[in-house]
Design a protein around this nucleic acid. Structure first.
Lengths: 337, 337
DNA sequence: TTGTAGGCGTTATCAT
DNA sequence: ATGATAACGCCTACAA
């Protein structure tokens, strides 16, 4: 069935389409009460709703904000998505969620598609890759976006200068390590995210600096890489368990990693935190329900999502927001002697 | 800066826009190799991408699929969203994710907005409400959608006849209860979802029937309501703990509830499953990492998301898919004597 | 206060 | 094999 358009409304109300347009757009423009009433009634009767595609075409931009995440089923991104969609909705926008399945190719492809949709802006939730090929392509696309006024906001470091809303990842890695050191730990392992992702790189750097600064000898033996998933954390922890004898604590680059790692440790019959302490970054809801409840550095994901939307909508020309974090103390860390 | 349009490409290549259109749409239409090459080169050079708003306007429908969920940060919906966005992407569609924040008003509003976008279809992931006002409004909107060929697929019961892809919720409630009964439990409590949500209603009905059928006396004392969240499960469990003396097991209407409930039980110094057994419905990733790992009825959420997209894209006139579930045995249920 | 008409970027029809 | 041209539904000068 044919969609009812503004023309139908105008006809039924016996006015011009201009008048109808003025009314539905609520422009501060004098329209006689009588016609307004007639139009409103016609709209009601026909259940008319403006065709947004036509509006976009005319206005040259859409009311859609694109959100690109690595995996929308990961609660970390879920929380961000919640902040984004809810704030967007408040401001009259909608969010197009793109889940790349951790495949960089896909990410690049989505940029293209979102651009085709002439979205208002794109929120890049995943961390960038330290990989020449990828970086070049991405930065080329960003340059193009910029040229046409499409806003970009990154929620994780991308290895290039681009607007962002995020935590200080280096500080994050440093702080959780220091927390352990202050509690008497010296043999501290670190389970990182993927080697080539900037978020991992920075957190790991923070760990290393904290270790150095405490006068502890740093060794790559103590570092294991994973992919930010539970399974990855589990596997990485197994490796650590087999080659490091005397560790008393493990820093995980995120909660997923530690949740996975803890189950590896428990499998060996070790106790947490008596035998091994754990700390991580993220403070997902599951951190609270883990066994034992996780001590972790909180990241205000929901808020980050909202701020990202604000940044895009407000159309500022430079955005650089570092949001605060704090360590949530629960029961996964033991204080030594 | 002005967007480059098909006209620019045509000009640069020295052909008509018709020819360009034919090439970018890959229609099986004869175009001389030479012009094709020229056009392709022009597209490349200008970085031209069709304006989708214009395409929609012309084609009368968009390549967007709407997904309405109660809370995108809930991993249950996250998994569904993943299935939806990934499958949609495979088929050349995009997904607009709307998180209602568990507010029915919002849900209705989103229907309107998605309709304005003339989306291809809407996937309704949340359960419907047993509430006259809401049901009337919803069914009116659905009727309108139908009239214009907008497809709807529900992933949870809505209390009305509409296409769906879901598990049998009644069976689900029944099976987990029977599982407990078979293992010697008689005093089995049930923590339900919200009273007015159909999903809850059906699962609870399954529980009740299983109890009846086993010749156990049913009592509303054994039932407590929550809101499908962890916090809700925690609170509901407290209530149960305070008024039911002799229970040996608790069925939760979903994993969140049980994860919350388990922490309430542990707080009282009780052991799981020695003192109280738990079983639930869902099999979220967190069920595996819970302490103890949860025995739960698996729901293939990712698959449901994908099937829903298929259903919409395939344009069948009637969709009614019941997906299989199975009980995943882990360590939260104790077999009695 | 109201209306007419041109254009946004595409696709599709109909000529050539 | 190629190209004008009329929609698609809306907004917005510009007129009246």
């Amino acid at each position: 069935m044919k969609n009812t358009s503004i023309v139908d409304v105008a006809k039924l109300a016996g006015v011009s389409i201009t008048t109808v347009s003025r009314i539905i757009n609520n422009v501060s423009y004098p329209v006689s009460d009588e016609k307004r009433k007639r139009v409103l009634k016609a709209i009601e009767k026909l259940h008319y709703r403006p065709n947004i595609a036509a509006q976009h075409l005319k206005k040259r931009f859409s009311d859609i904000i694109g959100l690109i995440v690595r995996d929308i089923s990961d609660p970390y991104f879920g929380d961000i998505a919640k902040g984004v969609t809810e704030r967007a909705s408040q401001l009259g926008y909608l969010s197009l969620v793109c889940s790349t399945g951790r495949n960089p190719e896909n990410e690049l492809r989505y940029h293209d598609i979102l651009w085709q949709h002439r979205v208002k802006g794109i929120i890049l939730a995943g961390g960038g890759l330290d990989q020449l090929d990828y970086k070049q392509k991405l930065s080329k696309q960003l340059a193009r976006h910029d040229k046409y006024g499409l806003k970009i906001v990154a929620l994780a470091p991308q290895g290039m200068e681009i607007p962002y809303v995020m935590i200080d990842n280096y500080e994050a890695g440093k702080r959780i390590t220091e927390y352990l050191i202050q509690r008497g730990h010296r043999n501290i392992c670190f389970i990182s995210g993927p080697q080539k992702v900037y978020t991992s790189i920075e957190r790991l750097k923070g760990y290393k600096d904290a270790i150095d600064r405490a006068g502890i000898e740093f060794s790559m033996e103590y570092v294991s890489y994973s992919d930010f998933t539970r399974k990855g954390g589990y596997d990485a922890c197994k490796v650590l368990l087999s080659k490091v004898k005397n560790m008393t604590a493990i820093c995980g680059a995120n909660d997923n990693i530690v949740i996975g790692a803890m189950s590896a440790v428990k499998e060996q019959g070790l106790n947490i935190p008596e035998d091994i302490s754990f700390i991580s970054i993220g403070d997902l809801t599951e951190a609270m329900y883990a066994d034992p409840p996780l001590t972790t550095l909180s990241i205000p994901r929901y808020e980050i999502g909202m701020l990202a939307v604000d940044a895009i909508v407000e159309d500022k020309d430079s955005i650089a927001v570092i949001v605060d974090t704090k360590i949530i103390e629960r029961r996964s860390v033991k204080t030594l002697n």
